[in-house]
Write a protein that binds this DNA or RNA. Structure first.
Lengths: 217, 217
DNA sequence: GCGCAGCTCGGGAAATTTTCCCAACCAACC
DNA sequence: GGTTGGTTGGGAAAATTTCCCGAGCTGCGC
């Protein structure tokens, strides 16, 4: 690409751990043509940073406290449908992957991969392609073979997001604020999730979420 | 004790995410006097790597699949009581911190901190000091305001039993039946446990119970 | 285009639970 | 013998859960 803008690929890094971000930054900038133009540690800042910098690609960890990455992806894509978001997560559960792509992600790579996989994925999504690491593809493939894979498949994107935050320990009020919903809606989802999954207490819901990799410990 | 070591601080990195490890490595080696002499992605490999390299310090994420980091710390310290292990974790729960120091860790820093904090902590533990980041200290301090050690120590026999069953997913009705109590009493305990432990949702209660080893998964 | 299905979002209202306060019993302990 | 603390529950107001409902939207097939 002969310089219409500065040559190279501009990147917005989103992850809630500063050291981890710093690490990625070094790994990525080690590639000569990558430039990390901004960082963010939460969904709201990510959106703001995207608006001011309009990076070629957003590399984002979706398991963050508060409003999740899914929300940020949706916001970003709503603002600019040409935006490229590459999810960079610890989890490879099919439901999470689906939710991410459903929200508008262009790629999904887990942290279990070597840096080269991440780098290649970034180049792919910048070219407008979709990308996912082998383990993610494997999880998705496995899941599509079984008619009733995970319990999470019966849940929609919103339901999964709310389940994740519930299991993380957020209150109804916090979730409503995080997702810009009324408490009533969150309560309704909470109830709906319980009936859909057959769980009868919130404790069972937490265990389910942990089992499905929606949240850790 | 070979003085063969070239100058500088030799480090063993333990974390189950390759990209994350790669990132740390770059951040650390950016300091001129740090040398990452080995990496490991699980507890067993960490112990093996420690035996062969005898690094000045082990920087370890304790939330790994399989055998936990705690076990690795214990093994390492058992082999060499002069070994220095710095825990580098996502979590700052008091119970986890205590468990880590109990297992023989020399320091505890969360990933929420800036890289400089990690770097300073490494220098501290190499000097033989103990180190922990502010957020960890804060969590410990908060927790130690209660006259007891573990959060569980402030709970009575009945309260612990009911917490265990709640976290296991039992309903109020089931617990009442199990313990031959009225539902009202169980509800009162449920409430009391939440206020005593400071947890605000049942989900937080489950996580607390799991952290304290009251229940698994 | 048109209907259908499914997700999202919330209102309503009754049933239930949570939240706090309280009293009583019993055992241990100074 | 009084005090402390764990245990057991009642009561009543506040809040949540439960279920049902409708409306807007999107995608899909006919």
């Amino acid at each position: 690409m002969p310089a219409s803008k500065t040559s190279g690929i501009s990147i917005l890094l989103v992850d809630d751990h500063p050291v981890v971000r710093q690490g990625y930054r070094r790994v990525l900038e080690h590639q000569g043509d990558f430039r990390v133009v901004a960082e963010a540690d939460n969904a709201a800042d990510a959106y703001r940073a995207f608006k001011t910098h309009t990076p070629d690609v957003v590399v984002m960890d979706i398991s963050m406290p508060g409003a999740s990455g899914l929300e940020a992806i949706r916001n970003i894509r709503q603002r600019s449908s040409s935006a490229r978001v590459l999810v960079f997560s610890m989890h490879s559960e099919a439901a999470l992957v689906k939710a991410a792509f459903g929200a508008g992600a262009s790629g999904y790579v887990t942290k279990s991969n070597e840096p080269t996989v991440l780098i290649e994925a970034i180049r792919s999504v910048v070219r407008g392609e979709h990308a996912m690491s082998d383990d993610v593809a494997h999880a998705l493939a496995m899941e599509s073979l079984t008619p009733s894979g995970s319990v999470l498949d019966q849940l929609g994107e919103r339901e999964i997001e709310i389940l994740r935050q519930l299991a993380a320990g957020s209150t109804t009020e916090e979730i409503a604020a995080n997702l810009n919903l009324s408490m009533k809606t969150v309560q309704n989802y909470h109830y709906l999730i319980k009936t859909k999954t057959g769980m009868r207490t919130d404790a069972q819901l937490v265990r389910l979420a942990v089992e499905c990799g929606l949240t850790s410990l």
